[in-house]
């Protein structure tokens, strides 16, 4: 049984009287110790999916309209808010895209980590502080004994993200959800943070859901990848399969948009057009207005998900790799 098993997740956003679909029929599974990458452009629904898994949509304009999220055999969507909170921050933790603003500016980082520990573990404040110190050491913050009493504004973005990771690991979660954890960081710091996440995963034995718009990052640390476009998963496969046999035109477009660091290119092969807004109805396949392979059938019928090979699912009328 998978650690995390999402079936047909439907999310809708309240817009006036209407409920517009933002995530539709998303099914994902994450095994223990596995890393799943969810990739897509801004607004494709990947972050909302992450927030839905974590249980942070409550109080927002986004509603869960259907589906199930089974975590360690229990449907999280069926839990009471109290039961749900016992999972959050304990067996499941999350780090965010904005390290600069994700820590509370008025408390020392050590106290913020300690709060995460004491919420779920019975121990003295002294023990919790020692644990926080260990965590800071674990995420390789230099001079943790001094840093534990620093305020967030006294730290760099990379260090704050390390503190966020330390906080997320406070209770040794089985699942870490990382929503664009390196996007706001310098390239060199990005590498360090990814490296850190990978080593912590090996050490603690946890699964990771990594949300990213960057196929490069995903290819480096994920075991499998789901590509999302406009609220739906358009391609899903193991990382090696996906990169050797990309089938969805959108996935190919994403890969083409990565600037090469090996040689200079004048033009990036960016995907033409833009993601349609929520209230724009697109008949047929949501990607067809931007797709190089689109024809009449793409304009009229939305393709269903089909397996081009075992464990390689594509939502496209004309999957690329298999036919060529």
């Amino acid at each position: 049984m998978a650690l995390l098993d999402i079936r047909d997740l439907d999310l809708r956003i309240a817009r006036g009287r209407e409920l517009l679909p933002v995530v539709q029929g998303v099914s994902l599974a994450v095994e223990e110790n596995e890393t799943l990458g969810i990739v897509g452009e801004s607004g494709c629904g990947k972050s909302l999916t992450a927030l839905a898994i974590m249980g942070l949509l409550e109080g927002s304009v986004v509603r869960i309209a259907g589906g199930s999220v089974h975590f360690r055999g229990r449907d999280l969507l069926a839990l009471s808010p109290d039961e749900r909170r016992r999972v959050m921050g304990d067996q499941m933790a999350m780090i965010f895209q904005e390290p600069m603003t994700s820590l509370n500016p008025v408390y020392r980082v050590g106290d913020q980590i300690r709060e995460a520990i004491l919420q779920h573990r019975r121990m003295s404040r002294k023990q919790a502080r020692d644990r926080a110190l260990d965590l800071l050491e674990l995420v390789r913050i230099p001079d943790p004994l001094r840093r534990i009493d620093s305020f967030p504004h006294q730290m760099s973005g990379g260090q704050r993200q390390r503190v966020m990771i330390a906080m997320a690991l406070a209770c040794d979660p089985k699942l870490l959800i990382a929503d664009e954890p390196t996007t706001a960081l310098d390239v060199t710091v990005q590498k360090e943070v990814l490296e850190l996440m990978r080593s912590l995963q090996a050490r603690n034995g946890m699964s990771i859901v990594l949300i990213s718009h960057d196929l490069g990052v995903v290819s480096e640390i994920c075991d499998k990848v789901a590509v999302m476009y406009r609220g739906k998963i358009v391609e899903q496969a193991s990382t090696s399969t996906l990169f050797s046999n990309m089938s969805h035109p959108y996935t190919l477009g994403l890969l083409g948009s990565i600037p090469s660091t090996d040689h200079d290119v004048e033009w990036l092969d960016a995907i033409p057009g833009r993601v349609p807004t929520l209230d724009e109805a697109v008949p047929g396949c949501a990607f067809h207005p931007r797709c190089f392979a689109a024809n009449e059938s793409c304009r009229s019928a939305d393709p269903s998900a089909s397996a081009v090979s075992p464990a390689h699912i594509v939502r496209c009328h004309f999957p690329q790799g298999s036919s060529s």
Binding site: R85, V87, G89, M94, P105, E115, A116
Partner: peptide
């Protein structure tokens, strides 16, 4: 954003409101 972090720790909404939101 930091309020979302506080909620992600699994804190009770009242604790989030007092210790994190009101304090700021």
């Amino acid at each position: 954003d930091h309020v979302r972090t506080a909620r992600a720790k699994g804190l009770h909404p009242v604790r989030v409101a007092i210790r994190h939101v009101f304090r700021n």
